[in-house]
Design a binder for these strands. Structure first.
Length: 577
DNA sequence: GCCGTTTTCGGCCCGACTGTTTTCAGTCG
């Protein structure tokens, strides 16, 4: 039987948590479901299969009860408790909780007292001033509900933007604030600082000689479209693209506490605080209260916060409650952009790129690289120009000619070949053997069923002339999940054959993701960080691949293209036989 | 519902804000 993808099991647990919350369950029980959902979402094995073997309880946060519910879901297609609660609470209730200031308690209250079960019936009741008749609700609540409905909130979850866009705006705002004469320290916090895939809003923490002058300055920055009234120590604003931003100016001796708190993640902070309580320490954004002395320790730097708790400093990218607070944790060396010596995935005008081979090579040299592989799309790609076998043969000659003229730089001729539905590449083996490099990717037939897709990708991994798999999951952030494939099996095959797996740096890909990249590296797979540049100005996209690699706890030794060309050359599948 | 240098029960982060409250519950980050 084909198991449900982990993301669907996780969604079911999240929904069950929401339903229990509506039902008035204690918060810890609700949290247990959300923690369970996180564990499932971050698992690299099929949790459905694990649960049927009775091994899902090995995941942190999954106990006997959750395992039983997962088994019910994958075997019977439904969890009895979920069916029962869904019958009890209409679907419209959950979307009402998206309104600010309206949570599960008030939704249940309005449902039981007034029968409100949708945004529409809520609107009618608020307009008819019926909400104020309910004990615990008043006219102010009615007004705020109407204002939120008017603003269209509740109709869709708050949008998240790609990290690339969030940092473009956030870094400009930070630079603008730092340039203000009263500013001292200014740092971006939140998920943007953790280099997460996507970002909901920007948090900036600062110190200043004159805090009110700095909060007032926010509204004047060119990136800010509108700003609320600035307070003494805080200001809110919105950028021209609609991203909201919070600025907080704090005392210098609490800067470390605030920066740590607002960098998150929430789960990292919860774990950090739970562990601290066992040592008699209570952590908040204002300091660390020591039970033994009754004193609150203030920290000017984040390093002090972690040191006071007896912990190694945790880099922001690792703060996701994925083991970074476990006893014995040692900070791993993390790869940096300057560690990279080459890029193995880019396009030229021969397929759908914007620059020539020469221009791409020159841009790579200017970045300080030692090698670059030209990897245009193969014949059946379906958009852009098709590089048919004869065109590729001519391209081989051209690249060899150009390479002969370059000193101290290796220009490689490669391809990004399609993985056809049967798992074979687009060119015959003879032609592939003539190349220096071959990366293979899925660009078609995304809807292939899981078992077939897994077989298809493993066939590509096992192919003797395929050196690496490009964007292995096929996800597009904010647009589609990856195709249905058992990535764990693909990783196992890659480890066995010595085929590399890519972290693609296109800002809406970052594929492999951090979870699977970490699993792949742990399995011994060599990881490739590529830009997938379609122009000279996009080689820098490798930054987003580096961000994902760091979130995957990867250091230079895990990454193939941190190696000088002779070493890298020997690592290629084609060189290993 | 999970979990164990306070082990199989009794705990389970911390604080701000809001509105409705007369000491607090709900929501949010």
């Amino acid at each position: 039987m084909a198991d449900l993808p982990n993301r669907e099991i996780a969604a079911a647990l999240d929904e069950l948590g929401d339903l229990y919350e509506l039902d008035g369950a204690i918060s810890h029980r609700v949290l247990a479901y959300r923690n369970g959902a996180k564990a499932v979402r971050e698992a690299t094995q099929s949790v459905g299969a694990l649960a049927r073997e009775g091994r899902a309880t090995e995941l942190p946060g999954i106990g006997a009860t959750l395992q039983e519910k997962i088994v019910a879901l994958v075997v019977d297609g439904e969890i009895p408790a979920r069916a029962k609660l869904k019958a009890k609470y209409p679907e419209g209730l959950l979307e009402i909780t998206r309104l600010p200031g309206v949570g599960p308690k008030r939704v249940r209250l309005m449902f039981t007292e007034l029968g409100i079960d949708s945004l529409a019936s809520l609107k009618a009741a608020a307009e008819g001033q019926q909400l104020r008749g309910v004990k615990g609700l008043g006219p102010k609540f009615e007004e705020s509900v109407l204002a939120s409905l008017e603003a269209g909130l509740g109709e869709a979850p708050a949008p998240r933007v790609l990290l690339s866009q969030a940092l473009r705006e956030g870094e400009a705002i930070v630079a603008g604030l730092r340039a203000h004469p009263t500013a001292n320290r200014v740092e971006l916090a939140g998920s943007a600082r953790r280099l997460a895939d996507t970002v909901k809003d920007l948090d900036v923490i600062a110190t200043a000689d004159d805090p009110a002058a700095l909060t007032a300055a926010l509204a004047g920055l060119p990136e800010i479209e509108s700003a609320g009234t600035a307070g003494e120590n805080a200001a809110k604003g919105r950028t021209h693209t609609g991203l909201s931003i919070d600025l907080r100016v704090v005392e210098p001796d609490q800067f470390g506490n605030l920066l740590q708190h607002f960098t998150g993640s929430a789960r990292h902070n919860i774990r950090l605080r739970e562990n601290a309580v066992k040592k008699g320490l209570h952590v908040s954004e204002y300091g660390i209260l020591d039970d033994a002395t009754g004193e609150t320790l203030r920290c000017a730097t984040e390093e002090e916060v972690y040191a006071k708790l007896g912990l190694p400093y945790v880099p922001p990218e690792l703060r996701e409650d994925r083991g970074e607070l476990d006893p014995g944790f040692a900070v791993p060396p993390l790869v940096r952009e300057e560690d990279l010596l080459g890029d193995l995935h880019c396009h030229t005008v021969a397929s759908d790129g914007r620059n020539t081979i020469e221009e791409m090579a020159q841009a790579a040299i200017e970045r300080g690289y030692q090698y670059l592989a030209i990897t245009d799309h193969s014949a059946t790609h379906g958009f852009g120009n098709h590089v048919d076998p004869d065109t590729l043969r001519r391209q081989i000659e051209r690249v060899r000619t150009i390479n002969a003229q370059l000193d101290g730089f290796e220009l490689l001729i490669g391809t990004e070949t399609n993985i056809l539905p049967d798992g074979s590449p687009d060119y015959d083996d003879e032609l592939l053997a003539e190349l220096d490099w071959c990366i293979a990717s899925v660009h078609t037939a995304f809807q292939t069923p899981r078992a077939e897709m897994t077989k298809r990708m493993i066939a590509a991994v096992e192919h003797p002339w395929i050196d690496a798999i490009g964007h292995p999951s096929g996800r597009k952030l904010g647009r589609r999940p990856g195709y249905d494939v058992d990535l764990d099996a693909v990783i196992e095959a890659a480890a066995r054959t010595g085929t590399m797996l890519e972290i693609n740096g296109a800002p809406d890909r970052r594929d492999l993701d951090d979870i699977h990249a970490r699993a792949a590296a742990e399995a011994g797979v060599k990881i490739l960080l590529d830009s997938d540049a379609h122009g000279t100005d996009r080689l820098g996209n490798v930054r987003w691949a580096v961000a994902t690699a760091r979130r995957a706890w990867l250091g230079p030794e895990h990454i193939a293209n941190t190696r000088p060309w002779p070493e890298f050359a020997a690592l290629r599948r084609r060189a290993r036989g």
